[in-house]
């Protein structure tokens, strides 16, 4: 496996592709390889891109990748699509919209299915990001459907998170419900040439005002009219980041430079005075807890006879034992004493 590390660092694309498969498959020995790669990571800027189906994430990712290429940055792309819960299979179709990126050796696109393993998708994605990072890609775009907690976990591994909206895809209540507005560092309204874009922009802006109290001073909603007030320079407060709302038409490349500029501004913002360290500490804390949980669980089940587990299930179903008692007993079998 260490040969693979050398090949990868030398820019071998097949070694990179195979290591990504090893990560996805949780192949034996992959943890050692990843540990060997770790010193070579930490250089890439990771950008999470999420939003409802049909908002144009893949098109925007394509446009962003092109914009970064003209700026001379290499780009790794992870496009995550859901695995069918019934068959375990998946159709990964994000490349359809990324055909313009073909033939550029400084772009690497990988489609990933969610699979839904014990450790969860966030581990696989995080490791895949590290592999692309070690391979030298300077910007890593991680695209995922923003439909649930696991997707939100993915974007938690990113430095800058883009939330994509589109006109006419639901009212502002949808935006609150999804709960993904809170994680946005940059809000993009794609398909901004469609009718209803003003309404979407207004809805997002008012949501942001709810979420970020400090932004309220920027404008006042008076009978549906946004009246700008004297702004006490909120954006000049160094540690306050107000997510910008940017309109794009990704397939026509409109507004894409503005998005790239916003990402880079956010990057500069985080690089100021300890902010990036703070963010990375948070990421690492989440990662360590997840990894520990995964290992402890796997370890636990490894030594537990399946009959014992099945027996506990049967007893709980028959109401002869409470789940709480069963857990205490299962843990006691492993010598773990839980305070009653």
């Amino acid at each position: 496996m260490l040969d693979q590390v050398h090949l990868l660092l030398d820019g071998d694309r097949r070694a990179l592709a195979r290591l990504l498969t090893a990560v996805e498959n949780e192949r034996e020995g992959v943890e050692t390889t990843l540990a060997a790669l770790y010193p070579h990571t930490g250089r890439a800027w990771v950008i999470g891109i999420t939003g409802a189906p049909g908002t144009g994430k893949s098109s925007l990712v394509t446009a962003l990748a092109k914009a970064y290429r003209t700026r001379g940055e290499s780009v790794g792309i992870l496009a995550v699509d859901p695995t069918s819960p019934f068959t375990g299979g998946a159709i990964l179709g994000d490349r359809i919209r990324m055909r313009d990126l073909a033939g550029d050796k400084n772009i690497f696109i990988r489609s990933m299915a969610t699979r839904g393993s014990l450790g969860g998708l966030s581990r696989a994605t995080r490791d895949a990001i590290r592999v692309l990072d070690a391979a030298g890609f300077q910007r890593i775009l991680v695209e995922t459907v923003g439909a649930g907690q696991s997707e939100i976990d993915i974007v938690r591994a990113a430095h800058t998170t883009l939330v994509i909206e589109a006109p006419g895809l639901g009212d502002d209540v949808q935006a609150i419900k999804a709960g993904i507005l809170e994680i946005a560092d940059v809000l993009v309204i794609n398909k901004a040439d469609r009718p209803g874009v003003e309404h979407t922009a207004r809805a997002l802006k008012s949501m942001l005002e709810l979420g970020h109290p400090a932004s309220r001073v920027q404008s006042v909603n008076h009978h549906g009219q946004m009246i700008p007030t004297a702004t006490p320079a909120i954006n000049k407060i160094p540690d306050f980041w107000l997510p910008p709302i940017i309109r794009t038409v990704a397939i026509e490349n409109q507004g894409v430079d503005e998005v790239v500029n916003a990402i880079e501004t956010h990057r500069t913002h985080l690089s100021q005075a300890g902010k990036i360290e703070e963010l990375e500490d948070q990421h690492i804390q989440i990662e360590l807890v997840e990894r520990l949980r995964e290992h402890l669980l796997r370890d636990f089940f490894h030594d537990l006879p399946p009959e014992t587990f099945a027996q506990a299930v049967a007893q709980i179903r028959a109401r002869t034992k409470a789940p709480q008692t069963a857990v205490q007993e299962l843990l006691a079998l492993r010598g773990v004493n839980v305070a009653k």
Binding site: G88, G89, A90, I91, L92, G93, R95, I96, R97, R99
Partner: peptide, 16 residues
């Protein structure tokens, strides 16, 4: 075909 393979538990990358 892509759908049939997915239903057989495979991960199908479709390029268009």
């Amino acid at each position: 075909i892509a759908r049939a393979l997915r239903d057989a538990g495979m991960e199908v990358i479709y390029t268009g």
